[in-house]
């Protein structure tokens, strides 16, 4: 009788964490200026324990620029992949993800509106932007899904992707309009449509971490229910899953996580599509493995994509969305092609 647990063993998590830390160190050391690993450790160590800093170490680059940036990138990468994995299970659609469904653009539109019309919470500038992003992300998700459902109640891949693309164009056009009129108050449209982690700080990192702790945990706790959804929503209902509750919690969590990421980095596309797909090929479709593995791989992937964007044409920086979209669209075509062929 097989008593093999469906999830990973603890040792696998240690390996994941080790791989993530290694990449993190690499990404802090490499860049427009390369810093030796030893100096990086010294800088972090001495800062944490409030020790005097040696003169020759570029302290501010490590502690004020790279470390917060890499943390933000890793957290956002993990969050976006987790969301992609959850959505692909919930909608039983391997091409679903915040970006392809138009949720990211919805969130970005919300954020842009908040900044342009000065909607903010006193004392915490980011909160108003994030709240609006969340609201718009959730509304766009509900809007897209309900329209798709009306057109085609099986929520088939084609219809849902088409709606997502159209919605993205729509949101982007309004966003461009607002950006043109709002002038200097808003970061360039490039930031919102292509994404960037330049200017990340510790507050951003803490916010994403907190969101991941709350909403990421909610999603992870529903692994089993997502398995049932991935087999079929009717089947999920028949085996006793509270379909409506799970759907609502997962959709809210996904919208919230995506919005928080979009608020700090703009829309970084295709991470949530590529990573869960690759993980599924390696670890299988069971969400007890798929979701945690996506979380870690997403962090690693986005850190490397950001590193590539920073270093490939240095000192010029390529927007991170360019890197991920380049890789992502190729994978997208591959998934689409192979899923068509399988039918």
């Amino acid at each position: 009788m097989s008593k093999r647990p469906e999830g990973f063993k603890p040792v696998a998590y240690i390996l994941f964490a080790a791989a993530m830390m290694t990449v993190m160190v690499l990404c802090i050391c490499a860049g427009s200026v390369n810093i030796p690993v030893k100096d990086t450790f010294t800088a972090i160590w001495n800062t944490v324990f409030d020790l005097p800093m040696p003169e020759d170490i570029p302290w501010s680059i490590i502690i004020l620029v790279r470390l917060p940036r890499v943390l933000c990138v890793a957290l956002a990468g993990g969050a976006l992949s987790l969301c992609g994995g959850a959505m692909q299970g919930l909608l039983r659609n391997p091409l679903a993800d915040g970006y392809t469904l138009g949720v990211s653009s919805g969130a970005a539109l919300g954020a842009v509106i908040a900044i342009a019309f000065g909607i903010y919470v006193p004392g915490f500038a980011l909160a108003g932007t994030m709240a609006m992003a969340m609201l718009f992300a959730f509304l766009s998700l509900v809007f897209i899904l309900s329209i798709t459902y009306r057109l085609d109640c099986s929520l088939s891949t084609n219809t849902i992707i088409l709606m997502g693309v159209i919605f993205t164009m729509f949101a982007n056009s309004i966003m461009s309009l607002i950006v043109v009129f709002a002038g200097e108050r808003i970061r360039s449209i490039m930031f919102w449509t292509m994404g960037s982690f330049a200017g990340s700080n510790y507050v951003n990192a803490i916010v994403v971490f907190a969101a991941l702790l709350v909403f990421g945990t909610a999603i992870l706790l529903y692994s089993r229910e997502l398995n049932a959804f991935a087999i079929g929503e009717d089947n999920a209902r028949h085996v006793g899953v509270n379909v409506r509750k799970v759907k609502l919690v997962v959709l809210i969590s996904v919208s919230a996580l995506i919005s928080v990421c979009v608020s700090i980095s703009g829309t970084v596309g295709f991470v949530g599509l590529v990573i869960p797909h690759m993980v599924r090929m390696l670890a299988g479709p069971n969400h007890k493995r798929l979701l945690p593995a996506s979380l870690f791989s997403g962090a690693v992937f986005l850190m490397l994509a950001d590193l590539l964007g920073r270093t490939m044409l240095k000192p010029l920086e390529i927007p991170i969305g360019v890197v991920t979209s380049f890789i992502g669209s190729v994978v997208f075509v591959y998934i689409f092609y192979s899923s068509r062929k399988a039918k």
Binding site: G89, N93, R224, N227, A230, N235, V239, R280, P285, N286
Partner: peptide
């Protein structure tokens, strides 16, 4: 849509 094993489906 996804390559669940027979046992995973039955287990649900």
């Amino acid at each position: 849509s996804y390559s669940f094993t027979v046992e995973e489906v039955v287990r649900l």
